[in-house]
Amino acid sequence: MFDTLRPRHFFVIGLPLFVLCVTAGLLLAGDSEPADQAETLPDAVESGDAEGRVPLDSRAEIIAMSCAACHGTDGRKATAIPALAGKPAPVLEALLLAYKRDQMPDATVMPRLAKGYTDEELASVAEYFSALSPE
C-alpha cells in the first residue's frame, strides 16, 4: 500500500484524495456517535451471544493478515513499503479504492492486489489498520 506515495504523488493524488475524504468525514460528523466508542482495539474479544459466541468472521482482520506479509505484523513495519497501523482510515480507504480503480499512476503491485477485494472489504481493512497503534 502507498505504493507510489512518494512526495510528488502525494501532492498530485494523495492530497486531493485526502482533502476529499476529510471533507466527507466532516460532512458525516453531524450525526456521529460519541467518540469514546471508537476506542475498542482489535485485540479485544467482544462479548457475544448467550453462549459467548459471536457468529461473525472478522473479515477485515482476515484480509489484513495478507497485508502483514509485506507491511509487517499488524502493519507496523516501515521500509520502502510503508507501515499502515494508525494511519487515518479515510486516507487508507481512498488509496485502496484509487489503486483498485487504476487511479494511481505508476503504482506497482497494489492495483493488482486491490482488485481482489470488494469496496466494502477495502474500507473495513482501512478501518482495521487505522485503529491499531503505530507501535
Binding site: L28, A35, Q37, A38, L41, V54, S58, A89, A126, E127
Partner: peptide, 25 residues
C-alpha cells in the same frame, strides 16, 4: 471520523456485526 467510518462499516458487516458493536474488529 474514525467512529463514523467504523459505524459505516457495520452496514457492510451486516447483522452479525451489529450485534457485536464493532463488527469489523
Amino acid at each position: 471520523s474514525k467512529s463514523i467510518s467504523r459505524r459505516e462499516s457495520l452496514k457492510w458487516i451486516g447483522v452479525a456485526g451489529l450485534s457485536a458493536a464493532f463488527g469489523a474488529y
